[in-house]
């Protein structure tokens, strides 16, 4: 079965991104496919590579990047939500005249249409938020 996941909260403050990550792993372990994981609202903060948690804590961002690399996942960050919250890739840096980027590996910034497409293409879409 084809799953997609919407993550609506940032890392650490809410449990949602932890739950979404564990759920995604379980989906793959069960042999299902993940069409896309979409990050919206403060969920876009899951995609900043500048995060530095204490060494004895989980690194939520690296964990997503690794999961994406190992399973060839499509991690999409909503552009409008990202612009509001300062999540920037090369294209956004140039377009908006910023002086840095912070998008973590394995993520890409794109439009909300990607969420709707995930809803259309997937058998199930599960929302994790607060």
């Amino acid at each position: 079965m084809k799953f997609s996941i919407l993550v609506s909260e940032g890392p650490y403050t809410h449990q949602s991104s932890d739950t979404a990550y564990q759920f995604a792993k379980a989906v793959l372990a069960k042999g299902h496919e993940i069409f896309r994981i979409f990050f919206y609202h403060d969920g876009v903060n899951n995609a900043t590579r500048l995060t530095t948690p204490p060494q004895d804590d989980r690194n939520i961002i690296n964990r997503w990047s690794k999961l994406a690399e190992e399973n060839n996942l499509d991690l999409v960050v909503c552009v409008a939500a990202a612009q509001r919250r300062g999540i920037v890739d090369d294209g956004e840096m140039k377009r908006n005249g910023k002086d840095a980027t912070n998008l973590a590996p394995g993520f890409r910034i794109s439009g909300l249409g990607q969420l709707i497409e995930a809803g259309i293409q997937s058998d199930r879409l599960v929302v994790f938020g607060d």
């Binding site: 079965m1 759920f23 372990a29 599960v126 929302v127």
Partner: peptide, 16 residues
């Protein structure tokens, strides 16, 4: 979590 996945798969829709 495997049971969580099954519940989602077994139901046509889910609402959080």
């Amino acid at each position: 979590y495997a049971g969580f996945v099954d519940l989602v798969a077994d139901n046509k829709t889910c609402q959080s």
